[in-house]
Amino acid sequence: MIIFKDFESFNEYVGLKKPIDNDIDIGYYDSINMRSQSEPVKADFYRISIKMDYTDKTLAVPKPITAIFFSSPEMLNGWNVEPNYTGMYVQLSKKIIEENRFLFKTYLDYGQHEALYLTESEVEEISTLFGLMYKYYKSEKQDFGVLLSYINVLISVVEAFYNRQFSTNPKQYNRIVMDFQQSLKDYYNQPVNQLPNVQYFADQLGLTPNYLGDIIKHFTNKSALENIHEFVIKKAKELLEKNNSMNNTQVAYELGFEYPNYFSKFFKKQVNLTPKEFREQIKSNNFY
């Protein structure tokens, strides 16, 4: 398997123009002169590809699509496509991503799950934005601040489009939400030695944490971590109320807290009562 460490070697392999920078590469596709078929390869950088009338011949029912694709390091990419699509691409080094992580949100690992399918008006909007970005890039002013601002706008537009896509086909994503909620319930059906976290549930569902988190946030209006914390508090209240023989330390360990004092602080933050105060309130309510 070939691993491409830089834009130049990858572009030469695919049939794209030589990059003019080692950290940001922007260009248009010329599919007639590009490699239309390849075994899986890896590119050790990030790619955002906007492809119009793109037909993947490996699909059971090949049909032209217009979509944005995301690729990140460690992803395998092989292709067998019709050489008649158009579009544009942005390639970003790992260095640029790490130095500007706050700009790029979560979409760069979406390539493992789903493309972003574009409507005609969205294609027009993306094309206009890309044209401005490409013009500035070709001027060779080398002002990364301006280029990154353009890319940030592109990512913000992508966020709006993904929200539209999530809302268009809720049945597909509701399954993920339900599986996440069921996994939460199943978590404490076994002995645990740590608190549940987003990475654990993402692994259970075969998704990346960012992708899972964005879907959960879109459909529940709360982050995946907020959902987890709510469930932990629910379990904590059940144990504190129904298991009088368990002291606070035992409850903390039962829930997966490593340190009992952290459980007390966590509970106080979420409920505005300490575990002891919560139990006293329950006793008082029961008395009356």
Results as ranks from 00 to 15, higher is better:
206 G>Y: 08
206 G>E: 11
207 L>I: 04
207 L>Y: 05
208 T>H: 11
209 P>Q: 03
209 P>K: 04
210 N>M: 10
210 N>A: 15
210 N>D: 14
210 N>F: 11
210 N>L: 13
210 N>V: 10
210 N>G: 15
211 Y>R: 00
211 Y>L: 03
211 Y>K: 01
211 Y>T: 00
212 L>A: 09
213 G>Q: 01
213 G>M: 03
214 D>N: 13
215 I>K: 02
215 I>L: 05
215 I>Q: 06
216 I>M: 06
217 K>D: 11
218 H>P: 02
218 H>V: 00
219 F>G: 06
219 F>K: 02
219 F>D: 07
220 T>M: 01
220 T>V: 05
221 N>T: 14
221 N>E: 14
221 N>C: 04
222 K>Q: 15
224 A>E: 06
224 A>K: 00
225 L>N: 14
225 L>G: 08
226 E>C: 02
226 E>R: 11
227 N>S: 15
227 N>Q: 14
228 I>L: 10
228 I>Q: 02
229 H>A: 12
229 H>W: 08
229 H>R: 15
229 H>L: 06
229 H>I: 06
230 E>S: 15
230 E>I: 05
231 F>P: 01
231 F>L: 01
231 F>D: 04
231 F>T: 00
232 V>E: 00
232 V>I: 14
232 V>R: 00
234 K>S: 13
234 K>T: 13
234 K>A: 11
234 K>M: 10
235 K>H: 08
235 K>I: 05
236 A>C: 08
236 A>S: 14
238 E>Y: 14
239 L>F: 09
239 L>M: 09
239 L>G: 04
240 L>S: 08
240 L>Y: 02
240 L>P: 07
241 E>L: 12
242 K>G: 09
242 K>P: 05
243 N>K: 15
243 N>Y: 15
243 N>R: 15
243 N>W: 08
244 N>F: 09
244 N>D: 15
245 S>F: 14
245 S>L: 13
246 M>P: 07
246 M>A: 04
247 N>G: 08
248 N>L: 09
248 N>T: 14
250 Q>A: 13
251 V>L: 01
251 V>A: 02
252 A>H: 01
254 E>D: 13
254 E>C: 10
255 L>V: 07
256 G>V: 03
256 G>M: 03
256 G>E: 07
257 F>I: 00
257 F>E: 01
257 F>H: 02
259 Y>T: 09
259 Y>P: 03
260 P>K: 01
260 P>W: 01
260 P>G: 02
261 N>G: 03
261 N>Y: 12
261 N>Q: 11
261 N>I: 11
261 N>P: 06
262 Y>P: 00
262 Y>H: 13
262 Y>Q: 13
263 F>R: 02
263 F>M: 06
264 S>D: 10
264 S>V: 09
264 S>R: 08
265 K>N: 10
265 K>T: 08
265 K>L: 10
266 F>E: 07
266 F>N: 03
267 F>R: 01
267 F>C: 07
268 K>Q: 12
269 K>Q: 12
269 K>L: 08
269 K>I: 01
270 Q>V: 00
271 V>W: 01
272 N>P: 02
272 N>H: 12
273 L>H: 05
274 T>A: 06
276 K>D: 13
276 K>I: 13
277 E>C: 04
277 E>Y: 01
277 E>G: 03
278 F>H: 09
278 F>N: 09
279 R>V: 06
280 E>P: 08
280 E>N: 14
280 E>H: 12
280 E>L: 15
280 E>V: 09
